[in-house]
Design a protein around this nucleic acid. Sequence first.
RNA 1: GCCAGCAUGCCAGAAUCCGGUUAAAUGGGGUCGCCUCGAAAGCGACUGAGUUUCGGCUCAUGCAGGUUCAAAUCCUGCUGCUGGCGCCA
Length: 422
Amino acid sequence: MIDINYIRENPNIVKKAVKDRGYDIDIEKLLKIDKDYRDELQKLQELKHRRNEISQKINKLKKQGKSAASEIKKAKQLPEKIEKKQKNVDKLKKQRFEIETGIPNLPDKTVPVGKDEEANKEVKKWGKLPNFKFKPKAHWELGKDLDIIDIEKSVKLSGSGFYVFKGLGAKLERALINFFLDFHSKDGWTEICPPIVVNKEALFGTAQLPKFEEDLYKTTEGQYLIPTAEVPLTNMHREEILEAEDLPKYYTAYTPCFRTEAGRHGSETRGIFRLHQFDKVEMVKLCHPDHSEKELEDMRQRAEKLLEMLNIPYRTLILSTGDMGFAASKTYDIEVYSPYQKKYLETSSCSNCLDFQARRMNTRFRTKQGNKYIHTLNGSGLAAPRLMISLLECNQLKDGSIKIPKVLQPYMGGLKKIKADK
RNA sequence: GCCAGCAUGCCAGAAUCCGGUUAAAUGGGGUCGCCUCGAAAGCGACUGAGUUUCGGCUCAUGCAGGUUCAAAUCCUGCUGCUGGCGCCA
């Protein structure tokens, strides 16, 4: 949610931002409703003020043993008026709320304007692309040949869009997760093991609801499976007022993530790229508004550093206004290289949401000038299956075995290779 | 899952039975100031939210409703916590 005061004062900036982001929202209508709402609210408060005054007068008269009949008669007319006004205020507030919650975050000035991923801006490229003397296999071939990824089994168990990691494949994924978590916690991040079933309030806070409900799995109890650990981590301090010295808060968690991927079929469905369930280590920062810009750079560098330690070629993009997520003001996507597909695949998305989520969650911190909204950031650090794709494909040898990156070897019991003849 | 009890500030806890002045007595904690070489103690101020023309006004006793001129207080539903029983990795 963006600040209604800001919309009031800068309607043209907001209109342009909304358009750049590919949304069609009637800002003038919102402002009209907002004006009506505030006028009506003031009138309602005046009525309530009168009611309070008369009630007190009645009490005083009764205490003095005098008759309050005429005052009570006057007072009796008020509840009906108040109720009517209240209904109107509630209606306007709801209308305002519905438009407000449909407005995406305002893009940062460094975000390229464009309608889709074509407009994304590459800001960094790292690593040497592997130059194989043989035809590199796809990750699904490697996975099958080495018996470490079993797609047929996952189809049998769950349908398409899932995976079974098996034997050293399962161990390798666990190695990645532990490596990521250890990297973050050694730098002082707080590791969290959160629920992966959450309520609608949490999903409203991080802005998956109400707009994107179709992307979520819903339980019969009315709760939802998390699409990312961003949801529980960011919502840890929903409806709280924090002390300034408690900021920043750095949270990390490993969780499975669940996405219906409604309407996405056809391309990119082969292998373990687009999935209904996948494992991810997430980073979430809650920080002082003055620091979020710097914190985003730091978060992005953490994700990049992980890839460098694994020696996986990547590139970093700033997403365009049309490609960015709803809650983000600025997003870096980090993409890892697939030698088989000869292209980069997204594996991390690091976003600064400013106070957009904090407003929805009502998470503030105390300052001398009153309570202010915090800023929230989230980023993958990192998503496991997509990293497995690049890890397997980049580290394959001619005989079909896989070199294990040095930093993962301690997590694999010292193993240096996953061998084909095994 | 069943039964019972409970839900007020940063914490503990009054007011609730029997509706009424201004919600928060009292204690603790915290912040700031005075005092001090410094600390402790002592003394003083501040310590729910929103809004404000800085006079105020509105909201706020778990949440949502109802009754009433008026609800922390009475009624209904829900949620959460605690205890007991049942089930259980």
